[in-house]
Amino acid sequence: MNEQQTNLYRFLIALADDSIVLSHRLSEWCSNAPYLEEDLALSNVALDYLGRARMFYQYAAEVEGKGRTEDDLAYHRNEREYTNLLIHELPINDFAFTMLRQFYLDVFYVKYLQKLSLSQDKMIAAIAQKAIKESRYHLKRSEPWIIQLAQGTEESLNRILVAKEELNDFIGELFDMSEWEKSLAENGISVDRESIKAEWQAYVQGFFAQSDIELDSVELRVHGGREGIHTEHLGHMLSEMQYLQRAYPGNEW
């Protein structure tokens, strides 16, 4: 791979890792959600992210050209080789935390994928065009939940506020650009994340205002995901997610 291809490969892996890690977290709600319909909904959102991850992994494997498959990339890379942004890997915590993270990410992805769907790379553009429709729908679902929780009881509001506090330090990384991502953005392949920060803030702030909640300033605080430096949570998650393929390599459904 030349430098451009190496950058493209890293980019695809990063986006795939973001998706699969969040997908796995959401799937942890399966059979544990507050009620059956919510159980199904969260599992379906997880499924959308899994599909997204598969498309990016398949393309990454093709770009790499070493004969690795999507499964090899998902199940046979270690924690330090995973390059997802940290917000995706945080444990599901309570329902308010899960939904607030989802709302933040839904707003982010609707804006991010919109720009990514104009990528000069046709495959990336096609994946983004597919995924954005799903993210728009996810947002339609997470917004009413934030209103319901924030304007519900003292307890539900309090949980939203605690979740907001916990997530605060991890938002900045969504808008951080690594050197290789910048180089791809200059060639019209990736998106300048910094350019959507103001839009994201304005949207979330505007939405929060309905419930008299304030969004704290968004700055780069905890980071390292793109370099493979993770919170203590990812290793535990991967050990569960990868267990079967590690114990029985190549096993198929």
Partner: peptide, 29 residues
């Protein structure tokens, strides 16, 4: 609407106010 996701990703769960039937809606997408 009862749930924005039904038994599969392509469907949402609805209920009729008149006959009370619960049904899947194939989401416009």
């Amino acid at each position: 609407v009862i749930s924005q996701f039904g038994s599969t990703a392509c469907k949402a769960l609805y209920q009729c106010n008149d006959c009370h039937e619960t049904f899947d809606y194939f989401k416009h997408f």
